[in-house]
């Protein structure tokens, strides 16, 4: 009787894991590229640190958002798995 419900819960849990696991790949690569270029820029021109830092933080925030959306959806799926 409870067999289909267990399967559906398991599917929700697997989906939650996949969501956060796959979702952070892109933003990890994005922040990595941004940080690498940022260090490259301040190594080449140390005096540009102040303006570069501002825009690095903006880029960091924009890349990070994707991972946070994945996190949010993963939590929503996980709560469904528990119920």
């Amino acid at each position: 009787m409870s067999e289909p419900n267990v399967m559906i819960s398991a599917a929700y849990a697997i989906g939650a894991g996949l969501t956060i696991g796959l979702g952070v790949i892109g933003s990890g690569v994005g922040i990595g590229v941004a940080a690498g270029k940022f260090i490259e820029a301040i190594a080449r021109q140390p005096e540009s640190m102040k303006t570069t830092r501002t825009w690095f933080l903006v880029a960091y925030a924009l890349c990070e958002t994707q991972a946070l959306f994945a996190f949010l959806f993963a939590i929503m799926l996980f709560q469904k798995a528990g119920s």
Binding site: A61, L62, E64, T65, L68, F69, F71, L72
Partner: peptide, 13 residues
């Protein structure tokens, strides 16, 4: 939307 979710998800996480 992203402004709200970014802060919320970071702190709640």
């Amino acid at each position: 939307f992203s402004l709200a979710v970014r802060l919320f998800a970071n702190i709640m996480g």
